[in-house]
Design a protein around this nucleic acid. Structure first.
Lengths: 198, 198
DNA sequence: CCTACCGATCGGTAGG
DNA sequence: CCTACCGATCGGTAGG
């Protein structure tokens, strides 16, 4: 089962984090043992602790780095030029790009923060709220400038959009090699026009 | 920690299933031990096996019963009278009603089938596909009769709708006592009209 | 990074 | 439904 480090692994620690991401994403955090990770890395379980602090900190690091990538990339799209519609499309594209690049990590980021302790959950929740706020602000701006319908329920719409986006890792990877841009366009159409069309 | 059986528990087995649903939903399947369940029921771990076969079968039963409720209720809405739009609204309402009634179980049904063995996963996947097919057929009918826009991507739209619906347990329970009908209406608006409005 | 091990906990069972 | 227990596995550590 043991694999060699890949090109992106600059240190043994990188290898451990990459393998843990794969296994947590595939079998969940409690469904993955430190021995599973070690055997995939090609070392013994005890040896992991020369590189990392413990299992929960490994999960925390994966989630926090993951969430920062979403916040950073989507913030760029949020702050970009164009109409509210164009910026929302860009935000959806940025999100889908990250999902397509790292479906396992996305799974962990949006579904497995529950396994963190109370204090770490609090930290993650704050960052997730900041991510959600990007979409809330975009919708509010779009309503204010007339790009979006005045009678939309911003909160429910944001949660609907995030629900759709957070569900994509469930089917994106098993859907074969659909071009990300095309898929993102269709998802944007579904979320922006609904079933009734524009 | 032990509680007495509630009114709906006709047998000790019912109590076990109800408690397991609560705990699997709150702490996940691998995050819940048979001892956790037993102590909440008020018996010892070994005694559980006088009533049930094993841990995985407990999970399977919860998921299968849960998914059947979704299929049954949403099928009624699918087969109801009215336009495609009205029927889709009724399907969304049926779904949201079940989520509101049993958020923990919904969590398990849509997120924790991964913890089943290969053969049980296959069975569950088939039923989930049948559920998804209800929405696919409804959208196809709506496109055919002109209720919905001709250029929607049915597959992506279905997955977007299911994503939004499957995400609701994440926020529905923590959102206080919003009337289910109202919330379902707003969600229907978001999914059917998008942000652009009708 | 290995050897060797810790105490705790896991799902489950035999016999009553 | 309890007593008493099984072998396996868990996250993690000491010492090298």
């Amino acid at each position: 089962m043991a694999r060699t480090a890949t090109a992106s692994d600059r240190t043994p620690r990188d290898t451990i984090v990459r393998v843990a991401t794969e296994l947590f994403g595939r079998n969940s955090y409690p469904g993955t043992s430190m021995r599973d990770i070690a055997s995939e890395v090609g070392i013994l379980a005890g040896s992991l602790y020369a590189h990392i602090d413990g299992k929960e900190n490994l999960l925390l690091e994966i989630i926090e780095h993951g969430i920062e990538e979403f916040v950073e990339e989507v913030t760029v799209a949020f702050e970009g030029a164009g109409s509210a519609s164009e910026r929302l499309r860009a935000m959806i594209l940025a999100h889908v790009r990250i999902v397509a690049k790292q479906p396992r990590r996305t799974q962990i980021v949006f579904h497995q923060w529950r396994y963190l302790g109370a204090e770490n959950q609090r930290r993650v929740r704050k960052r997730r709220a900041a991510y959600e706020a990007l979409f809330t602000r975009l919708l509010e701006e779009g309503v204010a400038d007339g790009s979006f319908a005045a009678d939309i329920d911003v909160r429910v719409t944001v949660l609907s959009i995030l629900g759709s986006l957070n569900w994509t890792p469930e089917w994106l990877s098993s859907d074969g090699p659909i071009p990300v841009e095309e898929l993102s366009d269709r998802l944007s159409d579904a979320l922006m026009k609904g079933v009734l069309g524009r």
